[in-house]
């Protein structure tokens, strides 16, 4: 009889353990972030935003009052760019058939001078919580620049990015730029940069445009274009006193998403170098978590 009782007790314990382990597995915290390019020019009043999805909202990880410190770190732990948390926005989003909590964390930079550029090809947002363990959330490429405009001979009249499925998903595939040269001599553009190591404007494949055309013609702009090679050096001329529209395709040397970027155009006029900076171009507003490519996401499951 005793044997049966002990057997039943052990069986009961086993069932309870199984139920508990299954329950804890089902509710384990799962955080999703997007592998994308974050590229900024940095000023004091600048705001940086990072987005995450979490399957639970009852943990301390995204509580404004629980976050004591923040910064961008490289995955090797060598470089660190400190940030100050400003606010947290919360909503819900569908993700892979489930409803997830969507967090947008807004930060302000704490370093606003002294550096010329900082480049972290594989970065993570590190959040520290006082008595809890810090959390590292991969975010993709993170670059900041403090460069400013030099000279005023060349100015940006219009910018429009071309959307398309590139890299991981819906991203900027190229851009139309309208530049005005007010100088009495020709301007020679020798570099266009988005301050990204993964997405490179291809000046060698740039072409002059009469009109940007309707959006459904965009795909034709890329006929025969080899998108994943490192672009060769090239120059584009903007004649003296003229305004010129060019289309510049982007070459993706690493898979990423690019939704906003600063623009840096380096040029020379009569052997004088100049630089045109456009600080911040947000070209797309879309749900980045709707991306269908699984490679676009990082999955973090904190202990």
């Amino acid at each position: 009889m005793m044997r049966y009782l002990i057997g039943a007790f052990l069986l009961g314990c086993g069932v309870v353990a199984l139920v508990l382990s299954t329950a804890s597995e089902a509710s384990a915290l799962h955080i999703v972030s997007v592998r994308e390019t974050h590229t900024y020019t940095m000023q004091e009043d600048r705001t940086l935003a990072f987005e995450f999805l979490a399957n639970r909202d009852d943990t301390h990880h995204f509580l404004e009052e629980a976050i004591h410190g923040a910064g961008i770190v490289d995955l090797a732990g060598v470089k660190r760019y400190p940030l100050e948390l400003v606010s947290v926005e919360k909503s819900v989003r569908p993700f892979e058939g489930e409803v997830y909590h969507h967090y947008r964390l807004f930060f302000s930079p704490t370093i606003t001078g002294g550096l010329s550029t900082l480049s972290i090809p594989k970065g993570a947002l590190e959040l520290s919580y006082g008595r809890f363990k810090p959390l590292k959330l991969p975010i993709g490429e993170f670059n900041v620049t403090y460069e400013e405009t030099i000279g005023d001979a060349l100015s940006l009249q219009a910018i429009r990015a071309v959307p398309g499925n590139e890299g991981h998903g819906l991203s900027a595939k190229g851009m139309f730029l309208t530049l005005e040269n007010t100088a009495g001599s020709d301007a020679v553009i020798d570099e266009v940069s988005l301050n990204s190591k993964h997405v490179l404007p291809d000046l060698a494949a740039a072409r002059g445009m009469e009109d940007s055309g309707p959006p459904d013609d965009f795909e034709k702009l890329f006929d025969g274009y080899e998108r994943f090679k490192r672009p060769e050096k090239a120059e584009v001329l903007v004649p003296a006193g003229e305004t010129k529209t060019i289309f510049v395709p982007f070459s993706y040397v690493e898979a990423t998403l690019l939704h906003r970027f600063p623009l840096q155009v380096s040029y020379r006029i009569d052997y004088q170098s100049g630089r045109l900076m456009f600080e911040d171009f947000l070209f797309i507003n879309t749900n980045r978590f709707a991306c269908e490519n699984e490679e676009a996401f990082y999955h973090v499951r904190p202990d």
């Binding site: 000023q43 926005e89 909503s91 989003r93 569908p94 600080e279 911040d280 947000l282 749900n287």
Partner: peptide, 28 residues
Amino acid sequence: TTSTSYIEETIDIRIQVDSMTQLHIGVY
């Protein structure tokens, strides 16, 4: 449908406007 509930998001853009010009931000 792309979402299951009400979502409101704040978008921040920093922009330079040159002297004696106006900028138009268009939406496609």
